[in-house]
């Protein structure tokens, strides 16, 4: 769990997770496009994310594809969010979404 928090503590790594959330199963090359990071930096961040089990990789032919793995985050949520809280939190998160969307 320490590894997950450490991995998430960095904005560049969160940005990489956001990119995979928007478009899952990307190659390193695709991830590097339009990012203000060197390829080496992206590689380094991906290694850390994979080590924290937040990114899973699959070899497909000659390509290595990267996937967002939210299971550790789910496990963290399960640890502190009681079984009775789910509905209330979902309602709050829906409300937040509606209010924030209407501001756009």
């Amino acid at each position: 769990m320490d590894k997950v928090f450490r991995a998430l503590a960095d904005p560049s790594r969160r940005q990489l997770l956001d990119r995979l959330h928007a478009d899952n199963g990307q190659t390193l090359g695709a991830l590097c496009e339009r990012l203000a990071m060197t390829r080496q930096a992206v590689t380094k961040h991906l290694v850390l994310l994979e080590d924290a089990n937040l990114v899973a990789t699959v070899r497909r032919g000659r390509e290595k594809l990267h996937y967002l793995n939210p299971v550790p985050i789910h496990e963290i949520a399960e640890r502190w969010i009681g079984k009775f809280e789910h509905t209330r939190l979902a309602a709050l998160s829906d409300l937040k979404k509606v209010l924030e969307d209407s501001d756009e």
Partner: peptide, 11 residues
């Protein structure tokens, strides 16, 4: 078939 969702857990 191309993987679209890949989830990993350690048990």
């Amino acid at each position: 078939f191309k993987p679209r969702i890949v989830y990993v857990t350690y048990i």
